[in-house]
Design a protein around this nucleic acid. Structure first.
Length: 886
RNA sequence: GCGCGAUUAGCUCAGGGGUAGAGCGCAUGCUUCACACGCAUGAUGUCGCAGGUUCAAAUCCUGCAUCGCGCACCA
């Protein structure tokens, strides 16, 4: 057996077990099972996505929850799938088309282009799924869903139709966030505000009725000046009262526009006069509505200027046009000055370009079940963890705006709306069709095309990807499955998509599925690099999880990440943490390898009392294992996964290997008695087999491997299927354990050796007096642990200066036999004495404080007193030693 | 502007009214027959700053500072 590799090599083992689990359908969820149901739906990654560390954290947590629920005897469904990710996917395919064939999607036409996207999806779509499998995710892959599966798409159309019929979906001309690169509208949530260095232009418009008199106006966007249809001032601003209702001259193209009064104008800002461009600013649009202003669109969809009346600007890119327009103003003597200025500008999340507020015809949704959603989170029907995210949720719900759900893309769920052909021809272009203008018979909304399709034209737009994602928890399940697994139990996701996804799913759950979609939402940390920056492709600071798994194993990556990931705060990723995860796996492997040198287990005892010849170390580790199970349970209840990992780590490394295994090592040697060996092996197996089960959710592969290899699964099955031990290994009848006293004494003895620089010597002799009555039976082990020979004496007249330690096993002396450097010893003692004297002083001060003695709990005071005794005793001992040295 | 979080060892982070913790790193010593992905021993902290509550504050409260995040915005 000893020819096993010294170091654990996870790669092959992980592959082997994952395919074994799959072959045996270990992840399969049976909706007709009698067991209690437990379900999680995966936050569907983009079908184009590549696994990053955020996914690793997120899915490891889900896997832990799922595996643990199985251990608890539940019927578990972890439902996987991917999201079609409208813009992201379409953009990728368009880029490929452009790069490889020099074509645009319009060159291909809608149908052919969509074929290409589907091809692309078939080819590249499965990458992230494979990567999740590599990580060990126990999803029910037979149930993998895609947001554009036929049945899923049907439900999206159905939901649209229902909302339309309820009057919650409407079409209208509004200012929307327009992405000039993707050429589509976006929702407010897809816009990211970034501070930008820009310029504030001060210019003047001449008053029509008073030539030579000017009104000063400040703007950051002179290039939209051609679309100005008014100037606004605040009615309370006395400087401008006299101008209200009069007209100024717009410089180009020349026109007269009115000065209106509107409360929106900030008196303090700029000159206090605001140019109004209703077609290109949300606030201006609203002011325009209040004052019935004309709307002039002066930009093309791609962000170039559309203004044939100004040939100097027509066709220019908006940023180029900005400079030219400023120059034109200057040429006319209307530009007063330009100031450097920093303001917040909206960027498109996907294309990272400046968003253009643009008026266009779009579909909007008035959110359903807003109050119910708000309440569910506020009253704890749905529990957010950490709780503070509930506030963020509430904040958004309060200021909720209608959702722009239409996108001018092809990849996605096409809006299930048809317009009568004659009507469209009549109105010339479908883009400007206003549903409000249509008669009932001119529009058709439904999940199936109209019966005479040739008479109808379908709306070209598709829906926002999130309009399909918000149905995910129930649209992925059929009726039977919903009965068993809906609502789901836990949702694990990032706090950055509370608005995009979580809140919307709750609304959809209420409105379409009759209630909450999940009970708990666990928000994971955001993983940053060591400098605190977000992981991103462009910064190149995002380690590839696959590389990490190649290096450290999936289990190592999972464990390392889980052990650091704090609850609710961002985490800085440190690769050394992953190395620790690997080291931990290796430690576990080697502990088992050691055991395996004595053969494999045939029987694993369920109770410690079944084992003969139990000694303190055996009892001790068994008791600690039972305590670990309880404590881990508690941490799970609070979703404190880092805590669980830390406890498992401390137990295996600190208790099992460092103490227990060191203490019983002798029993496994050839020289040991068969009885002692049998006892130790039995205890090892009882504890280890249970420990592997406890660890399994975090490190599924190695625990499965070792359980099999060690013979813990003699009765068949897999660790991942085993019920979590419902009984404890020990009972209160198992009695007290003295192991801790021995470990502590051994520690003190090793300290003594180190202090006198004889740490590595094995010929050190320790003398024990006032020994505990049970110590005689344990001197061998104590000697082994401490690294020396133990002799228990009734009396020992210690020469002055003999190093000593007071322990719970007795008073221990380490005779020096004159082998110590006296000079070094003296100065060491002096330092030590000073230190101890300080401790004594501290205790005395505390006990001298009558307020403390009177008011603090008595056990605290008593503790302080015994502490003082200990320090004082040590102090006099040291002084004695010091004086003996002269 | 409003809100939220963070600030503890060189680094990454736990903890939390009653003697300051882990791992890594560092130092010293170990090729000890499970493990150098290891073993043993050790050094390192005014627990961001200032007040307050308390017998007792790193911990609770208030303010401030720095860093980060979210929301709202000034054209």
């Amino acid at each position: 057996m000893s020819e096993l590799p010294k170091a654990y090599e996870p790669q092959e083992v992980e592959r082997k077990w994952y395919s074994t689990w799959l072959e045996n359908q270990c992840f399969h969820a049976d909706e007709s099972s009698d067991k209690e149901g437990y379900s999680i739906v995966i936050p569907p990654p983009n079908v184009t996505g590549i696994l990053h560390l955020g996914h690793v954290l997120n899915n490891t947590i889900q896997d832990i929850l799922a595996r643990r629920a199985r251990q608890q005897g539940k019927e578990v469904l972890w439902l996987p799938g991917t999201d079609h990710a409208g813009i992201a996917t379409q953009t990728k395919v368009e880029k490929q088309l452009r790069d490889e064939e020099g074509k645009t999607r319009r060159d291909l036409g809608r149908d052919e282009f969509l074929n290409r996207v589907w091809d692309w999806k078939e080819k590249h779509g499965g990458i992230i799924i494979k990567q999740l499998k590599r990580l060990g995710c126990s999803c029910d892959w037979e149930r993998e869903r895609f947001t554009m599966d036929d049945d899923y798409s049907a439900q999206v159309a159905e939901v649209f139709t229902k909302l339309f019929n309820e009057g919650l979906i409407y079409r209208g001309k509004r200012i929307v966030n327009w992405c000039p690169v993707s050429l589509t509208a976006l929702s407010d949530e897809e816009v990211i505000m970034k501070p930008q260095k820009s310029k504030l232009y001060f210019m003047k418009y001449e008053l029509v009725d008073a030539p030579g008199e000017f009104l000063e106006i400040s703007t950051t966007r002179p290039e939209t000046l051609m679309g100005d249809t008014a100037v606004a001032v605040n009615p309370k601003d006395e400087r401008f009262t006299k101008y209200i209702g009069r007209r100024v001259r717009r410089p180009f193209p020349e026109a007269e526009i009115e000065i209106v009064a509107d409360d929106h104008v900030d008196i303090e800002f700029g000159t206090g006069a605001l140019k109004i461009t209703p077609a290109h600013d949300k606030a201006d649009f609203e002011i325009g509505e209040r004052h019935h202003l004309e709307i002039i669109d002066v930009l093309h969809p791609d962000g170039t200027v559309n203004c044939p009346d100004c040939p100097e600007l027509d066709g220019l890119d908006r940023f180029k046009a900005r400079k030219v327009a400023a120059q034109m103003l200057d040429d006319k003597g209307l530009l007063i000055r330009v100031e450097e200025y920093e303001n917040n500008v909206g960027f498109s999340e996907r294309a990272d370009v400046v968003i253009e507020p643009r008026i266009s015809m779009q579909w909007f949704l008035k959110y359903p079940a807003v109050k119910e959603t708000d309440d569910a989170v506020a009253d704890g029907s749905i529990v957010y963890r950490p709780a503070r995210w509930a506030k963020t949720h509430a904040n958004w719900m309060e200021n909720i705006q209608d959702w722009c759900i239409s996108r001018q893309l092809w990849w996605g769920h096409q809006i299930p709306v048809w317009y009568r052909k004659e009507k469209v021809t009549q109105l010339q272009a479908a883009e400007s069709l206003d549903v409000a203008d249509m008669q009932a018979g001119d529009i058709y909304v439904g999940t199936e095309p109209p019966t005479n399709p040739e008479a109808w034209v379908r709306d070209e737009d598709v829906m926002d990807t999130w309009f399909s994602s918000w149905l995910w928890p129930f649209a992925t399940m059929n009726g039977q499955e919903q009965k068993k697994f809906y609502p789901t139990a836990d949702l694990v996701t990032g706090p950055d998509i509370i608005f995009f996804w979580v809140a919307r799913m709750i609304m959809a759950g209420y409105h379409f599925a009759g209630g909450l979609p999940f009970k708990n939402v666990f928000f994971t940390s955001i993983i940053r690099d060591l400098k605190g920056r977000k992981m991103s492709k462009s910064l190149g600071n995002s380690p590839d999880p696959i590389d990490l798994m190649d290096q450290y194993g999936a289990d190592g990556l999972r464990f390392g990440l889980m052990r650091t990931a704090p609850i609710g705060t961002d985490v800085r990723f440190d690769e050394s943490q992953v190395a620790e995860g690997r080291n931990f796996a290796n430690k576990l492997y080697n502990a088992c390898r050691f055991r395996q040198m004595s053969g494999v287990a045939t029987v694993v005892n369920e109770k410690l009392s079944e084992v003969n010849g139990i000694r303190p170390y055996h009892r001790d580790i068994a008791v600690k294992l039972d305590a670990l199970a309880v404590s881990v349970e508690k941490s799970y209840a609070d979703y404190r996964f880092n805590d669980v990992a830390q406890q498992l780590y401390d137990f295996l490394w600190g208790e099992f290997c460092d103490k227990f295994l060191e203490a019983v090592k002798g029993d496994l040697r050839d020289t040991a008695s068969p009885e002692a060996r049998e006892t130790t092996l039995a205890v090892f197996d009882s504890v280890m087999s249970r420990f592997l089960q406890l660890l399994h959710p975090f490190m599924p592969h190695i625990t499965e491997e070792l359980s099999a290899r060690m013979g813990y699964l003699a009765s068949g099955g897999y660790v991942m299927e085993k019920m979590y031990p419902s009984t404890t290994l020990t009972t209160s009848d198992d009695g007290e354990t003295n192991a801790e006293a021995i470990y502590a004494a051994a520690g003190k003895m090793r300290n003594l050796k180190a202090e006198y620089n004889v740490a590595t010597r094995k010929d050190v002799k320790f003398l024990v007096i006032k020994a505990s009555d049970w110590l005689l039976a344990e001197t061998d082990v104590l000697g082994l642990l401490a690294g020396g020979d133990i002799e228990v004496l009734d009396i020992y007249d210690a020469p002055k200066g003999t190093p000593a330690a007071v322990t719970d096993v007795g008073e221990i002396y380490m005779p020096l036999d004159g082998l110590i450097d006296m000079q070094a010893e003296k100065s060491r003692l002096d330092k030590e004495i000073a230190k101890v004297a300080q401790e004594v002083k501290k205790c005395e001060a505390k006990l001298g404080n009558s307020a403390f003695v009177d008011k603090a709990p008595t056990e605290l005071v008593d503790r302080e007193k015994s502490r003082l005794d200990e320090w004082a005793q040590k102090h006099s001992q040291l002084q004695e030693m010091r004086s003996s040295l002269g």
